[in-house]
Structure formats: C-alpha cells, structure tokens
C-alpha cells in the first residue's frame, strides 16, 4: 500500500504572469512509507506548488491526493489533521518564529493539534533530544539565536507534531557549509528516530546523490521523471535537456570515459568513485 498517492494533479494560480507560472499539469506519483524523495527542477518548475498540495495548503483544480488511501479533501473541515500528518518546512523557516521563548515556539504546532499539556511537553523534549536543540536554549528568545540555530528551532517546530511525512523546501539555502551539514544531520536523525518519509526540494545534486532514494524531476509543471537516484542520474541526456546537472563527480567520470579511460559509468558519489578507481588500479597492476 502506498502512503501517499497523487493522481492527475493539476493546478494553476489565478492571475499567473509569464514570470511566475508555477502551475502543475497532470502530475501523478506514488510514495511508499519510509522513502526519501528528492524533488529537483528549476525555479518556477512547480516544486513549491506541488509540496503545498501534499499537506492541503493548496487545493487542486483537478486530480486528487490520497493519504493512506483517503482523499485529503474528502472532509475539508479535517484538513488540519492532514497538516499534522504531513509536515512542511518552508524555505527560510526561521522567518516564521514568533514566540517569546524557543520552547513555546516549538510547542506551537503540537498545541494547535489540541493534545494535552504533558503530551505537548513530551513532544517538544523528544524532538529537541533527537535534533539537538539544547535545553539551556528553551527559555531564550528565538530571536537571540544565531542563523543556523534559528533554523534548527524552526524545523523542530514542525517536527514536534511528529509528522509521518516531512517535506523540506530547500532546507539549506542561505546557510554556510557548517550550517548546511547540520541541517542534513537533523533530517537524517529525525528519520532514523521516527522512520518518517522524507521529501526534500533541493538544487544540490551532490547532496541528493548521498541522501535520496528516489528523485522526482519537475519541468514546467510536468512530472518529467520519477525513479531511483541511479536511474535518474544515468539519464543524463534527458536531465541536460531540461537544463539540470548530474553531480560533479559524475561529470568527472563522464569526462574520463570520453577520453577512453576504462572506468565505471554510473558513479554519483565520491565514495563510489574512490571504490571504482581502486578497482581500476588493482586491475591494472594485476594485468
């Protein structure tokens, strides 16, 4: 049984301009429980529009979204329940912080779900332990934290609702390398602890190659491809035709192959590259 099923989803913003035409055209796909999905595509390809459909922030013009086989719009009054099951972390989530203290801000989501106070406390403490928000920060104002820490707290605010599916819209944008690493770590930790399904929008192919199981490629509002990372990255012709790149290490290997060096074809991470080159080296010395 698929966890999330999208059938023939179409959507157009009213009053869209040629510059901002983030429409979706007849998009269908299935997501299984526990998968890590990367969504790639250009700015304006409809990535943000798509993920806002998955938690019911936008209502499709046509088509349906099935969460555990139930159409999320069957009962519009219950749409907020969908939002606690499908968490969405927007780009620059730190811009949504508003409470006096870190603790209160993280508790905002669970509180909106209408659960008991001691339960809320548990949600907050659990999530902070998982992703490393220090208890000594609980009574601080979120606005006194550093940029990276603010983002960690904002992400905790969504995770505290314990969503089964959690979506990140470019979670590392605007951060320095250390900050980016931290965020990737948070996502991994959350998944390990909860087994949640993760969907990440990103422009960073190198990160995608390491994190994602499957990639969903959007182009001009249409679903171009949806497959395993290996299959997507091996289809360079199609990726390049829509102006997307493969990881740099893959491009280095393609260059080597073009020069007639006998290396493996589909290498997407540095780790795999080293393994492959070691084999070539060993093979040479054996010959």
């Amino acid at each position: 049984m698929s966890l999330l099923k999208v059938n023939n989803l179409s959507y157009a913003y009213s009053g869209a301009t040629p510059f901002f035409n983030d429409a979706l055209k007849d998009v269908s796909f299935n997501i299984e429980k526990g998968e890590i999905i990367g969504i790639i595509g250009h700015t304006g390809s409809g990535k943000s529009t798509l993920v806002q459909h998955l938690n019911g922030l936008l209502k499709p013009n046509s088509g349906e979204i099935l969460l555990e086989n139930e159409n999320i719009w069957d009962n519009p009054k219950e749409i907020r329940k969908v939002r606690s099951k499908v968490g969405l972390v927007f780009q620059y989530p730190e811009y949504q912080l508003f409470e006096e203290t870190v603790y209160k801000d993280i508790a905002f989501g669970p509180k909106n779900m209408g659960i008991a106070d001691d339960e809320i406390d548990k949600c907050v403490r659990d999530i902070c332990a998982i992703i490393g928000v220090k208890e000594e920060h609980f009574n601080k104002s979120p606005f006194d934290l550093s940029g990276g820490e603010k983002r960690r707290v904002a992400i905790a605010g969504v995770m505290a609702m314990k969503p089964e599916i959690i979506i990140f819209d470019e979670p590392t944008s605007g951060l320095d390398p250390k900050g980016r690493e931290d965020i990737i770590e948070i996502i991994k930790n959350y998944r390990e602890a909860t087994g949640a399904t993760v969907i990440i929008i990103s422009h960073n192919m190198e990160d995608m190659a390491v994190i994602a199981d499957k990639l969903l490629v959007l182009n001009k509002g249409k679903l171009e491809m949806f497959d395993t990372v290996e299959k997507i990255f091996s289809n360079r012709v199609k990726l390049n035709s829509i102006g997307l790149d493969v990881p740099i290490v893959t491009r280095v290997f393609d260059e080597l192959i073009k020069r007639g060096v006998d290396v493996e074809k589909d290498i997407f991470t540095v780790e795999k590259a080293i393994e492959s080159l070691k084999k070539v080296k060993a093979g040479d010395s054996n010959a």
């Binding site: 806002q52 606690s84 927007f90 811009y95 949504q96 909106n112 609702m161």
Partner: peptide, 15 residues
Amino acid sequence: ETQKIMNAQKARGAD
C-alpha cells in the same frame, strides 16, 4: 511575505 508566513503557520496547524 504575509502569504508565505500564513502558509507556514497553517502548516504548523494554525487555525
């Protein structure tokens, strides 16, 4: 920006 913030809070279950 208002629209974005509204959406972000709605995603956190704000009614």
